[in-house]
Design a protein around this nucleic acid. Structure first.
Length: 449
RNA sequence: GGAGAGUUGACAGAGCGGCCGAAUGUACUGGUCUUGAAAACCAGCGUAGGUUUAUCCCUACCCAGGGUUCGAAUCCCUGACUCUCCGCCA
């Protein structure tokens, strides 16, 4: 019932939104118009079937409707001008008025038809995912992701390592029952040293990115409107993943990517302002609809979690290099926390809707004896920028052109907490605090015992 | 929450229902002048769509959406946002 509420709301939102922004388009409209076959082929790589026949007929309708509406407009404008002149020179304008009696209605009808076609085109366009970059490997699911590199050696324990839930219980300070009482499942209540460790991780990450990697710290709203969510690509397709605020157009952010990237929505940056590099620490809220039964134990998959997010807005020619750099910035955190991890490139089937290329960083979890995602670093190229109308003035052309946007987790704090707990536990159930965090923990060397 | 004022180009800021895509100033770009710079002077300077080889031309956009009108930046309605005052509040 909780879900159905925002499903309804979502429908209303899309209806009202579509009407005043019919020009929304997520792929390059020139590609769709001039080379629809090529667009179809590129999208087919992702398994997306572009309905070429529909697109073509809509496109033809659009052209017709647009030129009809335009010529009627021209007609009306020139007639109206004549009436103005006639009136000014004191002539009788009644016959002129009679001549164009039905022009207004015709024009209105043409405009309505145009609006309808544009709406249909927008509906199609908004559902199209981004086109993957050429070096993104083919594949259907996460099993086809390609490992790029590994860092660190998974520790071999002389005892059976506990998972973070058991560790948290014995240390006391990680309480899922209480959180469920206060709220519902998939929330946690942290207390004492573990709560402090959680905070320390956040502070450490923020300091690292601002002081060593050149990011500007930013504080943003945690409730965002639907325009912002459309801009970064969470809407219209993924409404069910979001928590919506009843009777408003606001949603809890699923990631800081949304408010931070939307800083540049509808702006034209100067060449000098780029690259823009922001880091933000925010809570993230996700309904996790459709993930019932998955990762039900512990901190892995929560409705609310903290994340330190990196966002970059760059010139198009710089986005590949920025993507590599941003990923390294996230990797640095794992290295300093002495957490073994691997870097994988997502295959096409696992690639997010808006992304052209994504690296995931997966941290080693001794309890699961496997690598689990802790950061996702994506290059969106101009996909978000087009929806956001985020541009820069290219000095070579002196025209506003779309920027490229990127983001990555640096890192997901909850998952980092559990990774630190599990990787740095000892036989007595204590957690050894990595060197890099000690100053944030008042010099403390371990928790527990 | 109540009362009032406002929203115009990169910025500041004019604008009578038709001659307003929009004065003027600043900024910016190019030029003249200068040894160079500044100043001064001249010219240019929004976005998107249609047509076009290109130029031209046409259309839309003065917060958003709707309405009145032959014709709207200008009049009316709704909403968003900003400012001032009152109330409440961390």
């Amino acid at each position: 019932m909780f879900l159905s509420k925002y499903k309804l709301k979502w429908t209303l939102t899309i209806l009202s939104a579509g009407q005043h922004k019919p020009e929304f388009n997520m792929l390059d409209p020139k590609l769709l118009r001039n080379e629809p076959e090529k667009a179809a082929e590129l999208l087919a790589r992702r398994g997306y079937k572009l309905d070429l026949a529909l697109l073509e007929s809509l496109e033809q309708e659009r052209k017709q409707a647009q030129s009809d509406a335009q010529s009627l407009q021209t007609e009306r404008n020139s007639r109206s001008k004549m009436i103005g002149k006639a009136k000014a020179s004191g002539e009788d304008i009644a016959p002129l008025l009679a001549e164009i009696a039905d022009l207004g209605d015709k024009h209105k009808a043409a405009e309505t038809r145009l609006a309808e076609v544009l709406q249909k085109l927008t509906d199609v366009a908004m559902e199209l995912p981004n086109i993957p970059q050429e070096d993104v490997p083919a594949g259907k699911s996460e099993d086809d992701n390609v490992e790029i590199s590994r860092w660190g050696e998974p520790k071999s324990f002389s005892f059976e390592p506990k998972d973070h839930v058991d560790l948290g219980e014995s240390l006391s300070g990680m309480d899922f029952e209480t959180a469920a009482k206060i709220s519902q499942a998939r929330f946690v209540n942290l207390q004492g040293p573990l709560a402090k460790l959680h905070r320390a991780l956040t502070q450490f990450m923020l300091d690292q990115h601002t002081e060593e990697h050149g990011y500007t710290e930013t504080y943003v709203p945690y409730l965002v409107n639907s325009d912002s969510l459309r801009g970064t690509g969470q809407l219209p397709k993924f409404a069910e993943d979001l928590f919506a605020i009843k009777d408003t157009d606001l949603y809890l952010i699923p990631t800081a990517e949304v408010p931070v990237t939307n800083i540049v929505r509808d702006t034209i940056s100067t060449a000098k302002q780029l690259p823009i590099k922001f880091v933000a620490h925010t809570p993230c809220f996700r309904s996790e609809a459709g993930s019932y039964g998955r990762d039900v134990r512990g901190l892995i998959r929560q409705h609310q979690f903290e994340k330190v997010e990196l966002v970059q807005v760059v010139r198009p020619e710089d986005s590949d290099a920025a993507h590599e750099a941003l990923t390294e910035h996230a990797e640095t955190i794992l290295q300093k926390l002495e957490l073994p991890y691997r870097k994988v490139m997502l295959c096409i089937g696992d690639l997010g809707f808006s992304s052209s290329k994504t690296y995931d960083l997966e941290v080693w979890l001794p309890s699961q004896k496997t690598y689990r995602e802790i950061s996702s670093c994506s290059n969106f190229q101009d996909f978000q920028a087009r929806r956001l109308q985020a541009r820069w003035r290219n000095p070579e052309t002196n025209k506003p052109e779309l920027v490229h946007t990127l983001n990555g987790s640096g890192l997901a704090v909850g998952r980092t907490l559990l990774a630190v707990m599990e990787n740095h536990q000892d036989e007595q159930g204590r957690i050894h605090i990595p060197e890099a965090l000690r100053s944030y923990m008042g010099g403390q060397e371990f928790i527990g015992g």
